[in-house]
Design a protein around this nucleic acid. Sequence first.
RNA 1: GCCCCCGUAGCUCAGCUGGAUAGAGCGCCGGCCUUCUAAGCCGGAUGUCGGAGGUUCGAGUCCUCCCGGGGGCGCCA
Length: 546
Amino acid sequence: MSDPVGDLRSAVNDAAASLRDGAEEGGAAPALERPPQPDFGDFSTNAAMLLAPALGEKPREVAARLASGLEGGLGEDLDRVEVAGPGFLNLFLADGWYRRAAASLLAAGDDLGRPRAPADPDGVLIEFVSANPTGPLTAAGGRHAAYGDSVGRALELAGHLVQREYYVNDTGGQVERFAASIAARMSGDEVPEDGYEGEYVAHLAQELAGEGLGPGELEQLGRRGAELMRSSIEQTLLRYRVEFDTWSSEREQYDSGSVDRMMAELRERGHVYESEGATWLRTTSFGDDKDRVLIRSDGESTYYLGDIAYHRDKLERSGGRLLDVLGADHHGYVERLRAGLAALGLDPERLEFSIMQLVHVVEGGERAQMSKRRGEFVTLDELIDDIGVDATRFFMLQRSHDTTVDLDLELARTTSNENPVYYVQYAHARIASILRKAGDGAVERAVAADLAAVGGAVEPAERALLKRVCELPEEVAETAARRAPHRLCAYATATAADFHAFYRDCQVVGAEGEGVEDFRLATCLLTKRTIAKTLSVLGISAPERM
RNA sequence: GCCCCCGUAGCUCAGCUGGAUAGAGCGCCGGCCUUCUAAGCCGGAUGUCGGAGGUUCGAGUCCUCCCGGGGGCGCCA
């Protein structure tokens, strides 16, 4: 576990703590950030400004005292420290800090980028995609899949135990309509109103007929049809590098008696009542704006009923937190689900949601329409066939989950500099090329060398690149904590840009100066590992050649 | 009518939970390949951060209201 920036942050925190000395602990932790201008140093902190109110002193005076504390604490790592602006402390680090940082990161090996122990090391059960098994995954499914998977990967790297789960809605009205559509295809009838019109339904009908099923066997058609669809969805997801640990069945919630037990408990707790022939849960007692139906007046259970049981089941299994990745069209569902859990006496705060905004596939300035029932949509498989897994995942992940994605197929298809995913991959391939040129022996010598002892100055481009590389643990921690993989897309791009600048300014193979080639080879290797690690969290490949 | 998301450079979007002179990519203009991959680099232009109030040493960021765009508000899932 190697985190040079984390060590710096600790030093700042220690210096601040000793200054506080009994004064009340402030709210926010001091930030150690990248200053807006290079001449503001390598890092800056607002620690003094945060401390000033508690100490009853002026920020700049606190900053001056903090500065001398830091000079003591950091020793030769620090060139100098300046008080600036309203009370910022700007840290100017010595070349030695960069050399030691590089050596320590190099020693981290596979653990590169792993943050320090997480503040909340609980396990997280992420439920995502969970698209109905009544049709293929659409582009939107691809966004959910990439997001949930990458958040999971970031959480794992940050030290959490992650379980990926897909909830299969394999019973209920949608499946019945699906069955009726398959039956209609078998008998050559019109697909019913509210049915599924896609061509894939005809293929399914053919396949199921081959299994000996007829249009009259609706129950079997629905069950087998959903099984086949589910399996086909799984194949698409595997191709997309998304693997689920568990596939949970809605039907199983009923068959196992889990729903009945929960229903009895809700009644016992006095939150259930009958009205207008239906059975209701008094969710308004738990913050919902209206009560919700559990059992319809026709005797059928609602999706909601099974889903409460399912979420209770997940809470019991996970022991930690739950993250549900839902589409924007389900946001109204959030309060009602929390209310259902609260009615069971469970803590609704353990259930967290990421609400995904829409995806529009754009081609020639036109938005493709999306309707699963009418069979009009861009499937995830088609998207992958068209632009590849790497570009698809990058474009899906590039934007924050709460902003709409317009995926421009023409842009995504181009293998040129307009396409950000290639920009990042190119940097990785370029480094691989340098390392090949240097040869295995030279790289091994560089790894074994005493980097801290290398003489000469660290070039500005090297400093910038190494600083970027040092930020990986923090980026991973933030990505995990905020469930925001788009940060890593930006980080990967920035790292690639810093590398390209380094490439321009610093000759690696055959560099002059005692140990300089070793140091630069080490820097290249570190950068290569950093890009590869970042891309791996995004589920994107890091090619050796392009 | 109520709820959620968005509004930042010509376009697409970041902005690290309140900090310094608001950034990146694309596009546009001008340069750079006899040296490790030019899918690259360097330089240049572009902003009433949708609008109005408020909170404070400080607001793109927090609060209220308004305007505009998208999505939702079922005994569907």
